[in-house]
Structure formats: C-alpha cells, structure tokens
Amino acid sequence: MSDQPFWAADDYPKRALRVENGIQIHSTRGTVARTWWSKRFLAVLEALGVGGRLHRGRSYARSGQIVSCEIDAGSVVALVQGTRPTPYKVRIGIPAWGKEEWGRAEQALADDAWYAAALLAGGMPTEIEELFNGLGLALFPTSQRDLTMDCTCPDSTVPCKHLAAVFYLLAERFDADPFEVLALRGRDRETLLANLRRRRGSTAPEPVVEEDAVPLGELLDSFFAAGDPDLARFAPPVPEPGAVLDQVPELPIEARRHKVRDLLRPAYEALSTP
C-alpha cells in the first residue's frame, strides 16, 4: 500500500479548479484590510495563533476560488473550490450576543446617536470597541474558545487554505460595510437601526418651550463662542482612498489580467495625498 494519503492520489489535479464568476477580493497585492476594524480583526487572528497561516489562502481569495459566502448571526458559511470537483464547505463560528447583551449594547448606542450616524456614513469609530468593553462585551474574539473553524477538506492544518481565503474575504467585507461586523455578533443592519430608533423614543417633534427674549446687546460677548468644546467628535469619518471603487459594480473587462478597479485605486490614493 502506498504511503501517500488518499487525498494526494494522482487522479486529482495539483491545482485548484477554476471557478466561473467566483467571489474574489479586490486587493491584488500587499495588505488586504484598510480600515482599523478590519485590521483589528486580522490582528486578533494573529494573536490567537491563526494569522500566521492566513497567507496560505491569500491566492485563493485573490483568484476567485470562493463560490459563495453567507454571514449570519454567529456564523459564516462558505463554499470554496479546491482541487476536487465538489467545493469544500467552510464554517466559521463566533458566539452571537444574546437578547440581554444586545439590549445593553443597543441602549448604549441609542444614548449617543453619533455612533449610528458614523456607521451609516460607512465608518466605525474606534470608541465603539471601548464602549462595548465597558459593557463586558467583546466586539472581536478574545480567545480560541470564541472562534470555531471547520472545513470539509482533508487538510489537518487549521486554518487550511480554504478557511484562510474566507478570512480574507471577511476582512474586505468588513472594510466595505462595518455593519457586517455587528451582524456576526447577532444584529443585522435593518434590525439594529430599527431598535435604535425605537430606543430613542418617538419621532414626534418635542414641544417648544418659549423663553423670554434677551436683548442682542447683552449677548455680543458670547454670541460667537463655541458651544461644545468637543465638536471634532461629530465630524464625519474620513473615507479610505478609493472607497468609492468598492461601491460600484465590477467592470466586465480587464487590462493585462488586472481588474479596472485595481488599476484605478493607486490614482485615487495619489489624489488623496495632500
């Protein structure tokens, strides 16, 4: 009997089978994560001993080997095409917050509408992680127990290249939509925003309280003074260079095997440099 494991038999090709219209990440070189929350996600994987093996799946993610990927409360399920005819099923689990935990989180977010405004603008303020930590909630996994990984491929190494490819895709999806991070913890975009509106109360206008008018001459010393000393916190988040490219459909043409979106990205980054 051959010493070769059964999955290394010669009847399977050495390279992964190509996928028609597969899902591929936009980054063709260098780092994948651009926003702080996606970088934090990959950094957490590094700290948990997972990140060192992620490079195994980078080429899979870039070449479009991912057939499908669905993010739901507490889980990510994907199909990744390998060397066998049937795609491998990848499952990643992160504990979703329960009703009581999300109740505390939503109330804290509703108490300061700035967080919802920042999320709707396509950003996630760094303070949100501190806010959740103060409630005893971790936005990202904190230990190996918070992260489960499974793939139907025969590779005994965890994560295998198929799992690693999905992690890269998740990082890029988080870049494009920070609500995806919260969806993984148990709240999709529509449900979260509806709950925040409900917790902020009625949308009816507040009654106007009439006050005695003060002569303008008595207000001149303070008329032009700034009211809130921390106005910078209300500034909209600065989008990443080329973020608009991630919001438009991919053009069905390529130039020297490079996607038009990737060729345009350096130009956007150059224009954003002072």
Rank of each mutant, 00 (worst) to 15 (best):
P249M: 14
A232R: 10
E240Q: 14
T191Q: 11
P239A: 08
P207A: 01
G242W: 07
D228S: 01
R199F: 13
R199K: 13
P249I: 13
V214D: 03
A255F: 15
L231R: 01
V248P: 01
D230P: 00
A243H: 11
P252A: 01
D177Q: 12
D230R: 01
L192Y: 11
E218Y: 03
F223T: 00
R233N: 06
S202D: 15
D221G: 05
D212M: 13
F174T: 06
A194G: 06
P249R: 06
R187Q: 15
L245V: 03
S202P: 10
E172V: 03
A194N: 12
G242A: 08
L182N: 07
V238F: 06
D175K: 01
L219D: 00
A176C: 10
R199L: 15
R197E: 15
V181F: 00
T191C: 01
L192S: 02
R189D: 04
P237T: 00
A235Y: 15
R189V: 09
V244P: 00
L192K: 05
R256E: 08
E210Y: 10
F234Y: 15
P205C: 02
G201D: 09
T191L: 06
D230S: 00
E240S: 05
A235T: 06
Q247M: 12
F224G: 04
L231D: 04
D175N: 02
D230N: 03
P241V: 02
A176T: 12
E206K: 15
Q247P: 01
E190A: 15
V209F: 15
R173F: 07
E172A: 01
V208K: 10
L170Q: 02
D221W: 09
R197T: 15
L220S: 08
A226Y: 02
F223R: 11
L169Y: 11
L219V: 08
A176W: 12
A213S: 10
A235W: 13
F223P: 00
R198S: 12
L182C: 01
P241F: 04
A194R: 15
T203E: 14
L193E: 08
P178K: 02
E240K: 04
A243F: 10
D212P: 02
L182M: 07
G201F: 03
E254R: 14
R185P: 10
R256L: 11
G242K: 07
D188F: 07
V214F: 03
L196E: 11
